[in-house]
């Protein structure tokens, strides 16, 4: 089932300087899609368009076959949880629990029910021991986990991560990646759209859309995308380490196509006699 459908989307902040040019794609329910591209490729603008924070110049966005317009935007937003890049700038409440409560308050959830919901989702992201902590006492990764809890607590059908890991340290990054996996297991119908420039992270998704200069440059499964070295090179994108190494070895006349991991590559490079 099509969850998100984008048709011929165009957007520009300044006239004649288009940021998004005639972009079309479909995203199916329950899939995990990464949008990859350089800074300035238009990928973050795309996230803001999808949730109606910006209005497109041309083209249509459908969520569950419902066209995104001024009238439907509030209803559609209820289906989407958005996590932004900067952990500090999306922490609204004074403490962890207040921040998770913020969205619930907007949805007019009854006070009596809130505490239970907050506890459940704080636990989901592993922040249940920090409920009364202020943001200045949390690490970037912890703040992002709170942001995810805030988004999940509203029961969204789609989660959009707008470079949610790019300002985090490796521990924070891997925590968020694990969390994404767990979220998918919890709720297989949850659609995840991750905007990122971390190729290793994109490699975990079901589908990758590569944006370049406001257009879709390539679309496909991670293996397809990363096996197409020419495309990646022309877009100046990095390959995941293993794929890059396989390519390099191949050009030296060593075929390691069948090797799945480092151990198997090592076996080819130095077979035990």
């Amino acid at each position: 089932m099509k969850k998100i459908s984008v048709k011929n989307l165009c957007f520009s902040y300044v006239k004649d300087e288009p940021i998004v040019k005639h972009v079309s794609f479909n995203i199916h329910e329950g899939s995990y899609v990464s949008i990859v591209g350089h800074n300035g490729s238009g990928k973050s603008t795309l996230a803001r368009l999808l949730i109606g924070l910006l209005a497109p110049d041309d083209g249509e966005i459908y969520i569950d076959d419902e066209l995104l317009t001024n009238k439907t935007v509030r209803n559609i937003r209820k289906k989407i949880g958005l996590v932004f890049q900067n952990p500090d700038n999306q922490f609204i409440g004074a403490t962890v629990e207040d921040d998770i409560a913020f969205g619930l308050e907007n949805r007019q959830i009854k006070r009596e029910k809130m505490h239970e919901i907050i506890e459940k989702f704080a636990k989901r992201v592993g922040m249940e021991d920090f409920l009364d902590k202020e943001p200045s006492r949390l690490s970037g990764g912890q703040k992002q986990r709170v942001a995810i809890a805030g988004a999940l607590s509203l029961g969204p059908e789609i989660i959009i991560l707008d470079e949610a890991t790019s300002m985090l340290d490796p521990k924070g990054k891997s925590d968020i990646k694990e969390l994404i996996e767990e979220m998918r297991k919890d709720n297989p119908s949850l659609t995840i759209l991750s905007i990122t420039h971390d190729v290793e992270e994109a490699f975990l998704s079901d589908e990758i859309i590569i944006m370049s200069k406001g257009e879709i440059a390539f679309k496909g499964k991670p293996e397809e995308v990363f096996s197409n070295r020419e495309v990646l090179k022309s877009l100046n994108l990095e390959m995941p380490f293993i794929m890059d190494l396989k390519d390099r070895l191949k050009s030296e006349g060593i075929n390691v196509d069948k090797s799945k991991d480092l151990d198997e590559i090592a076996e080819v490079l130095w077979p035990l006699k």
Binding site: L262, I265, A266
Partner: peptide, 10 residues
């Protein structure tokens, strides 16, 4: 990978 090769005696 380098370590694995070393462990294998390369």
């Amino acid at each position: 990978l380098a370590k694995k090769l070393k462990d294998r005696g390369a």
